[in-house]
Write a protein that binds this DNA or RNA. Structure first.
Lengths: 183, 183, 183, 183
DNA sequence: AATGAATGAGAATTCATTCAT
DNA sequence: AATGAATGAATTCTCATTCAT
């Protein structure tokens, strides 16, 4: 006993998976612990409470996008190449993300009651939009770039919901393709 | 005692409001009862259990759309007029719907675990799409009509999530306006 | 099932007994429920939480003293008779009170962390002192009456602690006898 | 790692403070560790378990009284001087003792359930009484000396409870002054 | 000595549900 | 229809304790 069994990041990843597939409220600390091969109480060694797991989960995903997707806007590539790369990575993420977009899910499930969550979620979507706007501004005036970015994000989020219901990959990918026709 | 305090529909409406603003799992029977001025146990005179409330909530909203929005496709109006009316009614609904689209919310929160819910939700979105396709086919070939309908529904669903986070009405309305430029 | 098994007052009495003999923090909701022949959760039908039980316990005892002991000061009796009656009833209470004076116990155990408790406890001792002062003023100037009252209450409280440790009744009763020699 | 951060006595002192202000059951090992700048587990290098901390706390205080207060009875002073010194040191101790008398507190909180604690507590009060009796016997017959000693200890213990509630120093000191008028 | 990770038991509380009245 | 009392399972969280490092 008292041997290191898990890392904080591992718990976070298991929790994220559960939150996405079962919903946040519907996932118990016992569920998370089970998934990690720990007992309930042990989770509290790593996280103060369930809310903290939720918050760190949101931040973790948000940072993943910052580092791996939103940063593409600063690479030295052609506009079209950048957008292609962004769309590709984004599609990849959501195609393999069982249960959709946790940020969007928690936006509807609990953000009304948790200001800290809401802040991270709003920030995530704002950063996403800014990333796309910056790339699109290479070809479009600012306000048009903003409209395109907003519409892409919205339709992708809607498409993720549909993908979850129907498992139709083609339809999910259509949203990105659509954006790429614009540059 | 035994005074009629509420109707089934009244309970349903209060429950829908709670489900949309707090999430389904996060809403307890006691929450619903409180909202109705009843005590927990009394809800069971109207509904078999919580799952039934959820299911009837989904059906109730679905039927509202059938009767008040999807039926517009059969009215004797010009294509553009029909679409305008559909968009207007849809926007109205979601602008006043605190907490977004319950069908979409439950699609992400619990549809993975409740087949009955999933069926109603899939059906709702299918009917919605068919409604739009039927109208758009008056001007477009079938596959283009389908794409337009799908993209509208997706982007509206995404926009509803954003509206919930930012409360920016204009941006929500932009989605419908966008569709209307197509006819 | 769902038959009435207990009243709020019954639960309160059982809880008071446990708090006095085991301490407040050391008494679990399960302990209280067991004592009442209920299961843990059922207690919450009667009390919001454990703190509420503690608070109501304090108030319940405080009211008992108000009604049955402190009120004696207003009866139409000679000074000595009043004091004798007060002392007799007080002694009776504490001789039969397994575990001492809950108000004093909670004063040391949790009043530092619970303002609501502290208020009730302070008030109880103030009322007790005022009761005695009023009677003693029939024979003594105010400040002497206050000193006598204060010293009696203090020494009785200390004697209750000792009684709990030694079970020596005579020594407990000595405190009251001592007061009675003063009138 | 493995730097000496604390001594057993330091932990004991912090623990005593917590036990007095929060109660024994209400103080967790984590609370104690926090106060010492350690983590929970480290406490176990100094004490076998929580019960041992409690027991050593009681003994520690008891020994303090033995060495610093009860020993005064053997000093070569006049009766009045001895009693004055005892009262002064006792008052000093309790005036600066946030949370009252731990021995008395644990007498009410847990002595019913822990015989080892009870023994130390009973012994402490017995030794205290014997100390006072020995001094008072220089002026009074044994049984009167015993009554005076008992009444002083009781009323001081009660007064400590009141002091904790009201913070009225004068009233606490009155108990000692009272005793001193007797010699 | 001290730490970090873990445990298992048990704490308070909440939940959906039942049912006699 | 509605209520009040109860249930049993589950939930979040805390606690004392252990032990390899």
């Amino acid at each position: 006993m008292a041997i290191k069994k898990t890392s904080k990041e591992e718990i976070l990843n298991k929790a994220i998976n559960l939150f996405k597939t079962q919903g946040f409220s519907n996932t118990s600390m016992a569920n998370i612990a089970d998934e990690c091969g720990l007992i309930k109480g042990s989770i509290y060694h790593h996280f103060k409470n369930k809310d903290e797991i939720g918050l760190e989960a949101l931040k973790y995903i948000s940072e993943y996008f910052d580092k791996n997707i939103f940063s593409i806007k600063d690479e030295t590539l052609l506009t079209k190449e950048k957008l292609e790369k962004i769309v590709k990575k984004t599609d990849e993420y959501f195609l393999n993300s069982n249960g959709g977009c946790l940020l969007a899910n928690l936006a509807t499930e609990v953000s009304n009651q948790n200001e800290a969550y809401k802040t991270v979620i709003i920030d995530y979507f704002k950063t996403w939009e800014e990333c796309l706007v910056e790339v699109l501004e290479e070809k479009y005036p600012k306000n048009e770039a903003q409209d395109l970015a907003y519409e892409y994000i919205c339709s992708l989020q809607g498409a993720i919901i549909m993908f979850n219901l129907t498992n139709n990959k083609k339809r999910l990918l259509k949203i990105g393709k659509n954006l790429l026709t614009k540059v």
